[in-house]
């Protein structure tokens, strides 16, 4: 199966700053692919290289079967991390303008815009200027602008930013619908539970390099043993071999450093005075735990 997107060992610098050093991954038709990484890891630069906004200094980029040209741009929908709409233009006019730039006729764009505006509860605001809309409304408007021309490849950078739970669910549903319609989706986000809920495969980028890449289930399986859940009384923070400790619903969730052994952690807890351990279990790590484990504890690539 030919990938819809192939990123192969791309690199990009800005002056002395190496934004991306070596990133590779493939995205296949009809999947939702998660692009993860801490702030400044190089995700946005990678996306920009993917979309031909930047040319890579090294490596290859192939999108929809080759290099991006003007015709392919019409088949791509892009939602940037920061909202990219003209603030002093009216909402409906903006959507129609952006859709016509993607090759849609004005009549079709107008008709589709009305459908989308109604669906995302923005129809009554269509004559307002973008700057008069709330953050959430602007984000929904940006989602419409991304999808109005019915693109084959959808690239969304933090699509849930500024949305309340109801609208977050709405956008999730729309993303799933697009996948079911056969569209390829690349999603960059910090919200790991969204990635777990939506993405089949992910690439984790850290310091300009791909450090984790593969199917979510497989990655979680590989990382089993790298997280533990403890229930008890006392202070469970600052335990040797533990990268991060979270206290949630009465349980202590601990992400272990690479090479740390759950048995050693148990011994350290047992030796600590004033602690009462009621339950200790090895947990299947969440993507959050894996993210922290890889980003903070293991600088080396660990491809599943």
């Amino acid at each position: 199966m030919t990938p819809t997107v192939t990123i192969s060992h791309v690199a990009k610098s800005f002056g002395q700053v190496h934004a991306v050093e070596d990133v590779s991954f493939e995205v296949y038709a009809g999947e939702i692919f998660g692009l993860l990484g801490p702030n400044g890891a190089g995700k946005t630069t990678t996306i920009r290289m993917m979309l031909d906004i930047f040319k890579p200094e090294r490596g290859e980029v192939s999108v929809l079967g080759g290099a991006i040209d003007e015709a392919k741009k019409n088949r791509i929908g892009y939602l940037p991390e920061e909202r990219g709409l003209y603030k002093d233009l009216k909402l409906e006019a903006t959507l129609i303008f952006l859709a016509t730039l993607k090759g849609v006729s004005e009549t079709t764009a107008r008709k589709k815009a009305v459908d989308w505006l109604k669906r995302l509860d923005l129809y009554d605001h269509r004559q307002k200027k973008i700057q008069e809309l709330s953050k959430g409304m602007q984000q929904k408007a940006q989602v419409i602008a991304t999808l109005l021309h019915d693109p084959d490849l959808i690239v969304v950078d933090e699509p849930f930013a500024g949305l309340d739970p109801v609208n977050t669910r709405l956008i999730e549903d729309i993303i799933r619908e697009q996948q079911q319609a056969g569209k390829t989706i690349v999603m960059s986000t910090h919200q790991m539970y969204q990635v777990e809920a939506l993405c089949g495969r992910i690439a984790l980028i850290n310091k300009g390099r791909t450090v984790l890449y593969g199917e979510v289930d497989q990655i979680k399986h590989n990382f089993a043993g790298n997280a533990i859940v403890v229930k008890g009384q006392g202070d469970f923070t600052n335990v040797p071999g533990v990268l991060e400790t979270r206290h949630t619903n009465g349980d202590w969730h601990m992400a272990l450093a690479a090479g740390a052994n759950p048995q050693d952690v148990f011994k350290a807890l047992a030796a600590r005075e004033g602690l009462k351990i009621e339950r200790f279990e090895i947990a299947e790590p969440s993507l959050d735990d894996i993210f922290i484990s890889v980003v903070q504890g293991n600088p080396e690539a660990l491809n599943a």
Binding site: R48, L51, D52, I53, E70, K73, N74, I76, Y78, P80, E82, R83, G84, L85, Y86, K87, L98, L101, K102, A145
Partner: peptide, 17 residues
């Protein structure tokens, strides 16, 4: 400069040259 500040340029760059 507005185009840069409003980040519209990223959307525009993926639509036309």
């Amino acid at each position: 400069t507005d185009e840069k500040e409003s980040r519209t340029i990223e959307v525009m760059a993926t639509s036309l040259s």
